[in-house]
Design a protein around this nucleic acid. Sequence first.
DNA 1: ACAAAGATCCGT
DNA 2: CGGATCTTTGTA
Length: 170
Amino acid sequence: MRLTKSFFERDVLEVAPDLLGKTLARRFDDGTKIKKVITEVEAYKGEEDLACHASHGKTERNKVMYETGGHVYVYFVYGMYWMLNIVTGKRDAPQAVLIRSLDGISGPGRVGKFLKLDKSFYREDVTKSNRIWLEDIPSLKKVRYKKSARVGVNYAGTWAKKNWRFILPS
DNA sequence: ACAAAGATCCGT
DNA sequence: CGGATCTTTGTA
């Protein structure tokens, strides 16, 4: 079953761990369809969170984070990687979940490459899109997961210490 | 206008 | 541990 708007409109700290064990589905232009279980995510929450891209207010790059949950936030880094995030929460509450790993695909850069993401996915709605969406596995109710500090955000001071990275044990 | 840094990955 | 490679951001 496809995850709906109400799933994504909750607080990012609830949505992020709930995404573990869920399925990410992607239909490519040639019609090929793939599904992978999400195994690692990170939460980025609000303008106060110095590790969050919204910490300097709304900009051309991050403006989709201010929209309602369920939108895709993709951005380009290090000259070669597209990072996949799912916006969560209500409008004007900038939050997003970074999809760091899928089953067999370790690292956010590789996830973007595997899914063949690009600028055109910016602001895609995963509750409606026919090329990227998320699905529940009804039989799987609860999963155990580990928490740790987020990766690559040491510049964020005390915010870097928050255990907002959620990992499914392999 | 421009320089610097970046929610990364890979090879050495 | 440094290079690749280029967009976004704040003004170094």
